[in-house]
């Protein structure tokens, strides 16, 4: 059965291909008549850029029945890819000669690449987050870590009280404290390796042989809390990745739109 999401994408692709077909036909027609195709492709491209930017506006106008954001998103993806074709149709080259056109191209390529990267991130990361079997709101991660740290610290104090030995406490302040202070091994989490888990296992393991029996339950609890923190770290790294790519995509896009508008003005002033 075709899911509604696939149907939407199918429609979007049909639309995009049809639109591209019309534009290419027009392009050929104008080109055959020795007309100026750059006017057609340029305005088509600018329209797509404006449409792509409207996606952001749609997010702000969520109170209006402007269609589902998922449809907009599908259109954003499909028309974004369409714009690459239009872009090359318009410029006829991969790398322009004038400085400002080069800046324009850089911005376009930048926005494109970050967009495609972002799309890939958004498709891959959620599945990995599920595998943590944990859920936490990104904004609450510092609080969660603070809570774990507080619990760990009181655990260590209790352990010292109960056992009368400071072995674990020393180990904690020397080594484990570093781990609990903030999210760690972010790159490892991004790339899906288990550096955090390994570190935890290693550092819990090296102290175990020096502990008394009464201290061992505290060590196990410490390990447990460390594992929970490891999951939170994973969420921090992955959710952060899903947020941070926009930090590149958005400025590139706004810069692109601005410079494209300037380009439009320049063309009208100088050549039309």
């Amino acid at each position: 059965m075709v899911s509604s999401r696939m149907r939407v994408y199918l429609m979007c692709w049909l639309f995009a291909v049809a639109a591209l077909g019309i534009i290419v036909l027009q392009y050929v027609r104008i080109d055959n008549a020795l007309g100026d195709t750059s006017l057609l492709t340029g305005y088509a491209l600018y329209t797509t850029l404006v449409f792509l930017a409207l996606f952001n506006l749609r997010k702000r106008l969520s109170m209006l029945p402007l269609g589902r954001a998922s449809t907009w998103f599908a259109l954003h993806i499909v028309i974004g890819l369409l714009s690459v074709v239009l872009f090359w149709l318009h410029t006829g080259t991969f790398w322009s000669l004038g400085l400002y056109e080069q800046v324009l191209m850089l911005l376009f390529y930048g926005a494109c690449l970050t967009g495609i990267t972002g799309y890939a991130i958004q498709r891959i990361i959620p599945a990995r987050l599920i595998q943590t079997e944990y859920e936490v709101i990104f904004e609450r991660i510092p609080g969660e870590i603070a809570e774990i740290r507080a619990e760990v610290e009181s655990l260590i104090l209790r352990c010292t009280d109960v056992s009368g030995a400071d072995t674990l406490a020393r180990h904690y302040t020397e080594t484990a404290d570093w781990y609990f202070r903030r999210p760690r091994f972010l790159l490892s989490h991004v790339f899906g390796t288990q550096a955090g888990e390994h570190w935890l296992h290693q550092n819990i393991g090296i102290v175990r042989r020096y502990l008394r029996d009464s201290e061992l339950p505290y060590l196990d609890r410490l390990y447990e809390l460390g594992q929970r923190k490891n999951r939170i770290d994973q969420h921090y790294a992955l959710q952060g990745l899903m947020k941070i790519w926009l930090l590149a995509h958005l400025p590139l896009s706004t810069g692109l739109i601005t410079l494209a508008t300037w380009h439009l003005i320049i063309v009208h002033v100088y050549a039309l």
Binding site: L61, S62, A69, P126, L129, E135, I137, Q239, K243
Partner: peptide, 18 residues
């Protein structure tokens, strides 16, 4: 559906906006 959710909070912001 957490398989699709990117935790972008667009839903929360849409809720706030309305």
């Amino acid at each position: 559906d957490l398989q699709k959710c990117t935790r972008c909070d667009d839903c929360v912001r849409a809720c706030a906006a309305t």
